[in-house]
Design a protein around this nucleic acid. Structure first.
Length: 411
RNA sequence: CGGAGACUAGUUCAUCGGUAGAACGCCCGCUUUGGGAGCGGGAAGUACGGGGUUCAAUUCCCCGGUCUCCGACCA
């Protein structure tokens, strides 16, 4: 990608209507723009990151046996009345058509998926079943805040599992626990698996929490990793000594990036989702539900990985791997050399952004480069000669390498 | 949903009863190129919308909208 052609420019000043680090940096660096409170547009750079994250999640869900589907965002009121959530789900977006018909905009998809699954499964041979989607969700939040951490419209992965019995569900629940930790690890986030309140569904559930001052939740946890509970439910006090000798428990603010919990037969009962067991007897399907906020994950990564100059994207989710900074670009031999390196990197399958702008000071290009936060900066100028000056965004030192050496570094 | 604040150029802000100004960005020319360059010229605003007060309203008052912050809420 040529920077000069990229839709979305960097901005020097912080937007006046944003306080959160993620929104300030993502807007200034040209990844997103606000449409409404809690609603953002994603520009090319932003969409690239979102897609990278979604693909990590997709890959892990597929490994865990999930099949990807896409369910309707516009949903019939009737099913929401059946589950009683038309009135009890506070954040439900309700829309009325010009024919006075009311619909829900999906904040979650049990009301759509459970009736759908009922049409398509009937035997114990059809179970277990694991279905997921990555889709825009709508929640009529009383107060959107913190940039893309808490929106009214956001991208979410929701997976639902269907089982013959509790035992089979619990086996799968353990698979998903491991899967979730793997997803966050691949996004370079240290997620703390935390016991939380199960809401109306059960006595327990797990949340995946990332330590950050930008978070809205609080947990008490052991830095040794054997204990963590949401303050909503915990009776344990911070400062108490860990029983396994890891020292004292800490209370910290956290961002909830994922949540898994049992649904048991709550929705199976409402929609009469049953299967025939080996004896030909009807049994209720046992369900589980597993969510990850994809766009929130993107915001969380920025909250965790940045410095005073800008974003520091982990390689796994970065919009590009290499950012070529071309200096002296009005010198034809330098410009040609930069473009040649750009093309060779592309030929190697390395995603590259090249700052090909002319008549711009070096300082401005470096500042933009730091702000955008692509993992590798490669400077090409009159000074660099045949070598490439390489610097990682996360490090201070630069080194001079050949193109072959650079490609080796990146593979 | 309670409380507070804001809304003026693309962006960040100034002006504060007498029909708008800067910086950055943008366009043109020249100069410049290793940490947000210099000079000169230029384009760019129904001052959120609607009422009211006034000879006169971006400015004061009222209603509405939007955004932000604090709180409540967050299956």
């Amino acid at each position: 990608m040529f920077y000069s052609k990229l839709f979305g420019k960097t901005v020097k000043t912080d937007p006046k209507d944003e306080i959160s680090v993620n929104a300030k940096l993502l807007i200034r660096a040209g990844f997103i723009r606000k449409e409404l409170a809690g609603v953002y547009n994603f520009l090319p750079l932003g969409l690239r990151v979102l897609t990278k994250i979604a693909n990590i999640v997709r890959d892990e869900m597929n490994k865990a046996g999930g099949q990807e589907i896409l369910l309707s965002a516009l949903q019939t009121k009737n099913n929401w009345q059946k589950t009683g959530r038309w009135n009890s789900f506070d954040a439900l977006f309700k829309v009325k058509s010009r024919y006075e018909v009311e619909y829900a905009l999906g904040p979650t998809h049990e009301e759509v998926l459970v009736p759908l699954v009922k049409q398509l499964i009937s035997s114990y041979k059809d179970l277990p079943l694991s279905l997921y989607q990555i889709q825009t969700k709508f929640r009529d939040e009383p107060r959107a805040k913190s940039g893309i951490l808490r929106g009214r419209e956001f991208l979410m992965k929701d997976l639902y599992s269907f089982h013959q019995d509790e035992e089979d569900f619990e086996k799968y629940y353990e698979v998903m626990r491991k899967t979730y930790l793997e997803v966050f690890k691949r996004c370079s986030l240290e997620a703390i698996e935390t016991k939380a309140g199960g809401g109306t569904f059960s006595q327990f559930s797990h949340e995946y929490q990332v330590i950050s001052e930008a978070g809205e939740d609080e947990i008490v946890y052991c830095p040794g990793g054997d204990f963590s509970e949401n303050v909503e439910i915990t009776e344990v006090k911070e400062g108490k000594q860990c029983e396994l000798g890891h020292g004292s428990l800490k209370k910290v603010k956290v961002i909830e990036v994922g949540n898994i919990f049992p649904l048991k037969t709550k929705f199976s009962e409402v929609f009469d989702l049953t299967y025939k067991d080996k004896n030909g007897k009807d049994q209720l399907v046992v369900m589980g539900c597993y969510g990850i906020g994809i766009s929130r994950l993107m915001g969380t990564i920025v909250e965790v990985h940045h410095d005073d100059k800008g974003i520091i994207w982990p390689e796994s989710v970065a919009p590009f791997m290499v950012h070529i900074v071309g200096l002296d670009m009005d010198d034809k031999s330098v410009a040609d050399r930069a473009e040649k390196v750009y093309k060779l990197l592309l030929a190697e399958g390395i995603e590259t952004l090249i700052d090909d702008r002319q008549n711009l000071s070096a300082g401005e290009k470096f500042a933009d480069c730091d702000l955008i936060g692509i993992p590798y900066r490669v400077v090409i100028s009159k000074k660099t000669g045949e070598k490439l000056e390489v610097k990682k965004r996360s490090e201070k030192e630069t080194s001079f390498v050949s193109l072959d050496e650079l490609i080796k570094m990146l593979k």
